[in-house]
Computed example of a mutant assay.
Amino acid sequence: MDFIRVLYQRFSSLLHELTKFGLIGAAAFVLDTGLYNAFLVLFEGPLTSKVLATTISATFAYAGNRFWTFRHREQSGLGREYFLFFLLNGIALLFGLLVIGFTKYTLHLHDLFSLNVANFVGVGLGTLFRYWSYKRWVFLEATEPIPTELPDAEVRQDR
Rank of each mutant, 00 (worst) to 15 (best):
M1K: 13
D2Y: 15
Q9D: 15
Q9V: 10
R10P: 06
R10H: 15
S12Q: 14
S13H: 13
L15I: 13
H16T: 13
E17V: 04
I24M: 05
A27K: 04
V30S: 08
G34H: 01
L35R: 00
N37K: 03
A38Y: 08
A38P: 04
E44S: 14
P46A: 04
L47G: 02
T48L: 14
L52R: 06
A53M: 01
I56P: 02
A58S: 10
A58P: 01
Y62C: 00
N65V: 01
R66K: 11
R66H: 09
F67S: 10
F67K: 09
F67M: 10
R73D: 07
E74D: 10
S76Q: 11
G77L: 04
R80S: 12
R80A: 10
E81I: 02
Y82Q: 10
N89M: 07
L94T: 11
F95Y: 08
L98F: 12
V99S: 03
V117D: 04
A118M: 02
N119G: 10
N119K: 12
V121Y: 04
V121M: 08
G122P: 00
L125F: 04
R130S: 09
R130M: 08
Y131K: 06
Y134T: 03
R136M: 15
L140R: 07
A142P: 02
A142Q: 06
T143Y: 12
E144A: 14
P145H: 09
I146D: 07
D152F: 14
R156F: 14
